[in-house]
């Protein structure tokens, strides 16, 4: 547990008392070249590592693992650290602010501008699996879909915007998460009904006591269900 009076303070800690956690994926070149320069330019890490105290004189790294790796490579005995509190929120935001993890947005209620910016980011990543999709089309279709009710990302594959199951859909999970609303008991919204399967529509029509279901096609079902009961 971090000592409350240390929280927020800058401390010069022994490197071997800090557990680096899962480490950094930075390329060897960046680590070695930075370590070399760090030694040449005074040997002080002005950008601190973010840690929390796990027990007395034991720390765990929660942010800036790249700097830890550089300090280790440079052979520093001690590094400058900021002591953070123990909460999970602090660990998450530290990693996001350090640029180590990608922030996700809530697709259930994100604005169109947010969706567009997120997709644009993903498309522009080197060797992005969704490099070939049309930004305008994907943004329009995802924005207009009844995403507030989605429990999974699978409906995106039915939007005909070039995002298929597998690598492309998985890429989207890096930037989006879902906090779905429960489906209302009675759905009359046409676009929402059209997005549902015929089987689901038939089940709903049966519940609502609509007659002649067996002969109805999808459009007929949508038309019947969109009438308010």
């Amino acid at each position: 547990m971090s000592n409350p009076k240390d929280i927020g303070h800058l401390m010069h800690l022994y490197l071997d008392e800090i557990d680096p956690g899962k480490g950094t994926e930075a390329p060897e070149f960046l680590i070695k070249a930075s370590a070399h320069l760090l030694n040449q330019k005074g040997g002080r890490n002005w950008v601190p590592i973010i840690v929390r105290e796990t027990s007395e004189d034991c720390y765990e790294l929660i942010g800036n693992s790249f700097i830890y790796a550089v300090a280790e490579e440079a052979g520093l005995e001690r590094v400058w650290c900021v002591i953070a509190d123990d909460s999970q929120e602090t660990a998450e935001i530290s990693q996001i602010l350090a640029g180590e993890t990608i922030p996700k947005i809530n697709l259930s209620k994100a604005s169109r501008d947010e969706i567009k910016a997120a997709l644009e980011y993903l498309i522009e990543q080197p060797s992005s699996p969704i490099k070939s999709i049309q930004l305008a089309t994907a943004t329009n279709r995802i924005d207009e879909a009844p995403r507030q009710y989605w429990k999974t990302f699978d409906p995106i594959t039915n939007l005909k915007c070039g995002i298929t199951k597998g690598k492309k859909l998985d890429a989207l999970k890096q930037i989006f998460y879902l906090e779905p609303q429960p489906l209302p008991d009675v759905i009359t919204d046409i676009s929402l009904l059209q997005a549902m399967t015929t089987t689901d529509l038939k089940a709903m029509a049966k519940k609502r006591g609509i007659s002649g279901i067996s002969k109805m096609k999808k459009d007929d079902l949508v038309a019947a269900l969109s009438q308010s009961p």
């Binding site: 169109r112 567009k116 049309q134 930004l135 305008a136 089309t137 943004t139 329009n140 924005d143």
Partner: peptide, 8 residues
């Protein structure tokens, strides 16, 4: 889709 993007 292009023009819808523009008006939005």
């Amino acid at each position: 889709e292009y023009y819808k993007d523009l008006v939005k």
